[in-house]
Write a protein that binds this DNA or RNA. Structure first.
Lengths: 143, 143
DNA sequence: GGTAATATTTAACAAAGTTAACTAATTTTG
DNA sequence: CAAAATTAGTTAACTTTGTTAAATATTACC
């Protein structure tokens, strides 16, 4: 790695530690961070399937199956058997689930607010655009 | 959230999902990502204590204690009772541990390389400096 | 010198991941 | 078109790794 890459590496290390430390645990509104993330995913991908959720979070189908069961039992999400393919269950958020997502002052929102306070509007937009460029590249060319 | 904040929020969501999906599991060189991160931390903070590691990864002392035990048993790190305070054990990496860190083409390194390919030198430096500014602000003012 | 605090470990337990094996539905193919 | 293969999801058994509570050993403080 050259010097610029090394500097980026170091700051990315810090960012990664921060994200991992802040996201892996904690409970708000009676749901854990993992539960919340799943609810939010389903909220933003209405009618998605368990398979898709498993892929998005990179965990095995049985693990997702158990999480979904919990969320259904607690009336945060709902599933409906697809009429096109009856193996498939389409997921959606209940009013309770939506309420939690809408009212959740979540980790990312707090970060976004802090970030917008510490940067000028131009800097924020520049950061967003650079990150966006990078993410497109990284996410598409995954091994 | 205003429009700029919202855009940042969205891209940060993507980044967070990416980090969580890529870091939370996986095994290289016979150690899991968690083990690797602890070894690397000790590598970069020679003579640090279990307490410090626990704080850095935001997990409880018993959890770290078990991880350290595993790493010691597998000859990846070593501990030495401090002569100044015999409650404390100073941690260091063994040659095996150092080897793993040195030879690990790890997640962050791959990201850094991809990022440096998709951005110009100026853009990369700008991104690093913006992220750095943001991290200082965020990490210091944690709740 | 007795009490409080600190670093670490042990024990008991809970959450959430894994693989393997199963069901039910759909698709492929000879 | 029926048998075989594939796919989405679940159940069961197990492992890893987190937690809290309690124990140990050491140090710090009136």
């Amino acid at each position: 790695m050259n010097k610029s890459e090394q500097k980026f590496y170091d700051i990315f290390t810090e960012l990664q530690c921060f994200i991992l430390a802040n996201m892996s645990k904690g409970e708000v509104n009676g749901v854990t961070a993992t539960h919340y993330n799943i609810i939010e995913y389903i909220y933003r991908h209405d009618k998605c399937t368990g398979k898709q959720v498993a892929k998005a979070f990179n965990i095995s189908p049985p693990a997702i199956s158990r999480q979904l069961k919990f969320l259904i039992e607690n009336n945060l999400i709902a599933q409906e058997q697809s009429s096109l393919d009856r193996r498939v269950f389409n997921l959606s958020t209940t009013d309770n689930g939506k309420f939690i997502v809408d009212s959740s002052e979540n980790f990312r929102e707090r970060v976004a607010k802090k970030v917008s306070k510490s940067l000028t509007k131009n800097e924020l937009e520049s950061l967003t655009s650079l990150l966006s460029k990078v993410m497109t590249e990284i996410v598409e060319n995954q091994t």
